[in-house]
Design a protein around this nucleic acid. Structure first.
Lengths: 205, 205
DNA sequence: ACAAGTAGCTACTATATCGTAGCTTCAACA
DNA sequence: TGTTGAAGCTACGATATAGTAGCTACTTGT
């Protein structure tokens, strides 16, 4: 879809070789790799297939990424989502907005299709595991920011653990998306947030 | 480990062909397949490798499972865990016991290593997805049983959703095991249960 | 307009895997 | 004891992939 202007149909005959620039070629390769990752999983990403899809010659891809891991790494980095941190003025409002945004991405994004492959790879590869948890922490940093603001406003006690709050909210959403495969509607998301709030900041949150 | 008595070293020469029975051969194949699944992921399970590991001839494996999917399906079925449902007399006690058992399996079981591969496959294969959610529901049926007993005792209101409770408890545990890769100690597990309880059954639960 | 860099092509080796065929040999059972 | 079912072996052919080499021809920067 994105950058597949070149058809491989005409082998050294048609009058349209249509070469692309260095940057265009890199971008096309990464896009195809990520596309493949979401469609066919980690093992579905091969140099041959990336070449076929992007229209970039295999040898050219090898020029920029010597191994499959390098290519995949760059692809994932480039397309990793960043949740933007809302600022509504209250802890409850911020968390609800953040959770709804996360649920949105879980349901529609290509990212949520690629994620299980990465989790799977992390299970058996220490480097991938470290990369994954770091990337993941970055993606969830919104929770820390929100909690810090709430703490400054005095909405949260001192003996409070952001990572528990994150797990309490992100956990159920992830669970529904990948494990129980149930609906992730707004009512559920709001319920999750309410439950997570109803523990430390009892009254209003 | 389990059933690898036969070394492939001696090709039609040594005096120890050591043939096994039909059942033994099947069991060895399934065990090897599951072992490979946990060690190398879905794509690591090939007929050649299962044959190598189990010591069962590839042609023999083909006799019983015509496709890779069939072999994997049987292997997963055979080794899928069943959480036993505790009965302590109170909702809080039951949920705590169940959650602690789940956390235990998440940390030590081979099952938790194989799970991401299945989740990943389910992402792209409708049949796998259906199989996965059915199997998963079975594994989580303890929550329903516990909730039913609690409801009979009057510990839970009528407008109560078991699936939300399940997500509120299993979600954070899964999240820590696979996504944030943080510690899953008893304190965290108990905290998760308390938070899940502190919503419908306010006082004692 | 010219030179250098580089995208793209064909072709190759080596390996892993799928899936099948035909044969040999063991073990259980009548 | 003899028949028969089945495990195990070797050996195919076909396909997919990793990774490299050498060449052609286009693009970019001067």
């Amino acid at each position: 879809m994105s950058a597949k202007s070149r058809s491989v149909g005409a082998p050294a005959k048609g009058p349209e070789p249509l070469r692309r620039s260095k940057e265009a070629v890199k971008a096309a390769s990464l896009a195809a790799a990520y596309e493949l990752l979401t469609e066919a999983g980690l093992s579905g990403v091969s140099f041959d297939e990336v070449s076929r899809r992007s229209g970039v010659a295999k040898t050219t891809i090898y020029r920029y990424w010597p191994t499959r891991s390098a290519l995949l790494f760059d692809a994932v980095m480039q397309f990793a989502p960043r949740l933007q941190t809302p600022n509504t003025g209250s802890l409850r409002g911020d968390l609800t907005a953040l959770a709804l945004g996360l649920a949105q991405r879980l349901q529609t994004g290509r990212w949520s299709s690629a994620m299980p492959s990465i989790i799977d790879a992390a299970e058996r590869d220490k480097e991938v595991a470290e990369f994954q948890s770091r990337t993941h922490a970055g993606m969830m940093s919104g929770f820390s920011a929100i909690a810090a603001r709430a703490q400054a406003r005095g909405e949260l006690g001192a003996n409070f653990d952001v990572s528990e709050l994150t797990a309490a909210i992100a956990g159920p959403l992830f669970y529904r998306r990948w494990f129980s495969r149930q609906e992730l509607d707004d009512a559920f998301v709001r319920g999750v947030v309410e439950r997570a709030l109803g523990w430390d900041s009892s009254g209003h949150g």
